[in-house]
Design a binder for these strands. Structure first.
Lengths: 206, 206
DNA sequence: ATCTGTGAACTCGTTCACAGCT
DNA sequence: AGCTGTGAACGAGTTCACAGAT
C-alpha cells in the first residue's frame, strides 16, 4: 500500500478535476495560489501535495496544466479503463448510472444487477441490467474489482459478502449499513444521510 | 465553533446510527468492543470519542444503549426538527427525496425547487416542488439554514451564491463543482465520482 | 518581486499501556 | 478476568518560514 494519506488522495482528485476544467478553457499555466482557490485548500498544501506526486513547476510560470494533469492521473494509477458494476437499480442506482456516464471516461459502469424481475434485461441510461443471481459469475468472468452498492440496507451485507468472495476488493457503499468485510477490501461509505447530519451539526454549532 | 474534530463527528454519527439499530433490537447494554465492531473503528477510539461527549459507562455492563444514544444526539445538538430544502429535482434529487424520507425523522426535506416547468408544482416522494425563482423568498420566510444542491454543475455556483445570500449557511453539494462561498458557510462535498475514484485508487494500489 | 520547494516545527488525532473498578 | 477511563507517548498531516530560482 502506498504511504500517501487518504486526504492527500482526495485533494489530488480534486486538483485533477480542476485541471481538467482549466484544460478545457485552454489555460496553459497555473500557480499554486490559483489551484488553491479553485479547489478550496491552502496553497502551501497544494505545493506539498504536488511534491508527493513528484511534479515540479517553475517559480516563473507555476505549473503547466496539461503536464500536471497527466502527472496526477499517472500517480493515481488510473489505468486506461476501469470497469465497475452497480448493484441495485433503484432510484439512487439509476441516478448514479446517469451521473457517472457523463463524468470520467476512464471509469465506466459496464453492468447493473437487480433482483426485481421487472428491471432485469432492461437498459437504464445505456447500462444493461442482469439478474442479481448472475453477479458472482459475472465478476469472475470479467475480473471485476470494484462495485457500487445501492441496494436496500437489509440486503447490503449479504450481497457485499458474495461479491467480495467472487473477487471484488473495492466497494462504494451507498447504503446506511456498515459492511463487515475482510480488512483487505477497501470500502468507501457514502451514506448521504451522514453528510446531511454533519452539515446540520456544523451549522448548528457555528 | 466546537473544538471537536470532523472525524470524531463522523464517527459519532455512525455510533448513533448503530445504537439506534441496537435499540430496535431491544439490546440494552453494549461494550466498546461491540460498538467498535459494528461501526468499523477500533475500540479504544470508541472509548476516546465517548469521553469527548462526556458519557460514562461501567466496566461491568459497558454502556446503556438508550442513554448513550440520547447523549450523542444531544451532543450533536440535533434539534427536534431540522428543515432542509433540496434544489434540483433530477434523477439524483428524486432519489435523495425518496431516501431521506425513510431515514432520520429529525431531519426533513420540506420543499424542493427546480427550473423545469414540467416539474414545478408536482409532488415527488411526498415533497412539493416550487419554481427555483421563489427559493430566496422561501428561505427567508421559513428561516432555512441547510440546503441540498443536486442541480447540474453549470448552475451550481449561481444558485449556491443566491441561497447563501438569503441565509443558508450549510450546503450538501452533490455537484462536481467546488463552490466558492464565504468561509462561514459549511460545505459538505459529496461528489460521487470522487468516491469512486478513491476506491479505484486504493484497490489498484493495494 | 514573486513564485516554488522544503527542512523544521508544530498541532492534533490516534494509539499505547495501565490504573481502577466490578 | 475483563471492562472502562485516561495520562502519556507516538506519529502523521499541516503549517511555517525561508532559501533558491527566474
Amino acid at each position: 500500500m502506498k504511504s500517501i494519506a487518504e486526504n492527500t488522495i482526495n485533494r489530488l482528485i480534486v486538483y485533477k478535476k480542476e485541471l481538467g476544467r482549466l484544460l478545457k478553457d485552454s489555460v496553459s499555466n497555473v500557480y499554486s495560489h490559483k489551484l488553491a482557490q479553485l479547489s478550496g485548500f491552502p496553497s502551501h498544501l497544494v505545493r506539498r501535495d504536488l511534491m508527493n506526486v513528484g511534479y515540479y513547476g517553475s517559480p516563473a510560470h507555476g505549473y503547466k496544466v496539461n503536464e500536471l494533469e497527466k502527472c496526477i492521473s499517472d500517480f493515481l494509477c488510473t489505468p486506461d479503463y476501469v470497469r465497475v458494476i452497480l448493484i441495485g437499480v433503484g432510484n439512487l442506482g439509476r441516478a448514479i448510472l446517469d451521473y457517472c456516464n457523463q463524468q470520467n471516461p476512464k471509469i465506466s459502469i459496464i453492468a447493473a444487477f437487480d433482483s426485481d424481475k421487472n428491471k432485469v434485461n432492461k437498459i437504464y441510461h445505456g447500462i444493461y441490467t442482469f439478474h442479481i443471481g448472475s453477479v458472482q459469475n459475472y465478476i469472475k468472468e470479467n475480473d471485476i474489482k470494484v462495485a457500487i452498492i445501492t441496494v436496500p440496507g437489509s440486503e447490503a451485507q449479504k450481497i457485499a459478502s458474495e461479491i467480495v468472495e467472487s473477487g471484488v476488493n473495492g466497494i462504494v457503499n451507498f447504503t446506511p449499513v456498515r459492511l463487515q468485510l475482510p480488512d483487505d477490501v477497501y470500502i468507501e461509505n457514502l451514506d448521504m444521510m451522514l453528510g446531511l447530519e454533519k452539515v446540520v451539526y456544523f451549522v448548528d454549532g457555528g
